[in-house]
């Protein structure tokens, strides 16, 4: 029973982080209809930038995180400017292929700069020792991940609903040409979505790295972790992404607790199997709306 409770608790914490990563995908998917395959690599880049800042340059963790998010915003801007804007208006197929190229570039850059050395964030602010709550142990870095991810989700949703830019983004996602005709600068909106997407990825990368370490395999593993979340969440909803994150996190942790020791590596595979099954029975995800196609 303790073990089960522990798995549920950890699953919710880790799920919130997955949800945050998937939100980055949702932002980009909503506005430009592109599935960003490089999201996992962006997570890894964010994690490594914060790692460099906090470990090599010994900045405090919060400063490293803030600087890292600025850097990620810059990276998002560059990606949009150099890759996505020249391809605007092309088919989504072409744009997905461009993210494939991006994936390879980011992977190569990470390997060349940071190599394969794992980074562990300093543990001054967030202590390493567990807190005992009744029968379960709560790790501060897990709790920290949960809080930051949930706050980020709320902020993002509010921004999307209430702010001017948010309204513009929603309008663009409904109909690009119509939005342009009422005076919304679509290129600016797309730029903003890439910036927000990259920041989400960077933050998720840092939080993910705090659980264990940041390492060069995070790109692949991160992508594999957020894809089921993205699909369950129905591709276009922030709250859906967060709730789906909780589900995937719990599944992940249950698999980890009961199967991992005998079948190493299965933790990352179980959510994917679940995703394939769900695609058969509920093709548009748990929180998505069914779309009607017109010719």
């Amino acid at each position: 029973m303790n073990v089960l409770m522990q798995a549920l608790l950890d699953g919710i914490c880790i799920g919130a982080i997955y949800g945050l990563g998937a939100m980055g995908l949702v932002v980009i998917q909503k506005s430009s209809g592109v599935f960003n395959l490089a999201q996992g690599m962006l997570m890894m880049v964010g994690g490594f930038i914060a790692g460099s800042l906090s470990v090599n340059m010994s900045l405090p963790m919060w400063a490293a995180a803030v600087l890292c998010m600025l850097a990620m915003a810059l990276i998002g801007l560059i990606i949009n400017f150099l890759v996505m804007r020249p391809l605007a208006g092309e088919s989504p197929f072409t744009q997905i292929m461009a993210t494939v190229g991006l994936m390879s570039i980011l992977y190569g850059i990470v390997m060349a700069i940071w190599g394969t050395l794992p980074y562990i964030y300093p543990t001054e602010i967030i202590p390493i020792e567990n807190i005992e709550i009744g029968v379960v142990l709560l790790s501060p870095s897990y709790l920290n991940g949960l809080i930051i991810a949930v706050v980020a989700c709320i902020v993002l949703s509010l921004y999307y609903r209430k702010s001017r830019e948010g309204t513009a983004m929603r309008a663009t996602s409904e109909d690009e040409e119509l939005a342009a005709s009422v005076g919304i600068r679509v290129t600016k909106v797309l730029q903003l979505t890439w910036i927000i997407g990259s920041i989400c990825a960077g933050l998720a990368g840092i939080l993910f790295g705090m659980l264990g370490s940041v390492n060069y395999m995070m790109g692949e593993i991160g992508l594999m972790a957020i894809i089921p979340v993205f699909v369950f969440g129905g591709l276009e909803s922030f709250v859906g992404a967060l709730l789906a994150g909780f589900i995937v996190g719990v599944v992940n942790m249950l698999a980890g607790t009961y199967l991992e020791v005998t079948f190493p590596g299965i933790t990352n595979v179980v959510p994917l199997v679940l995703m394939l099954t769900i695609l058969i029975f509920k093709p548009y995800g748990l929180f998505g709306e069914e779309r009607i196609e017109r010719v």
Partner: peptide
């Protein structure tokens, strides 16, 4: 008592240490 195995790319060793 027990064997625990892990894949070379684990991101955390929670399951192994718990076991």
């Amino acid at each position: 008592t027990i064997h625990t195995f892990h894949s070379p790319s684990i991101t955390d060793a929670k399951a192994q240490v718990t076991a």
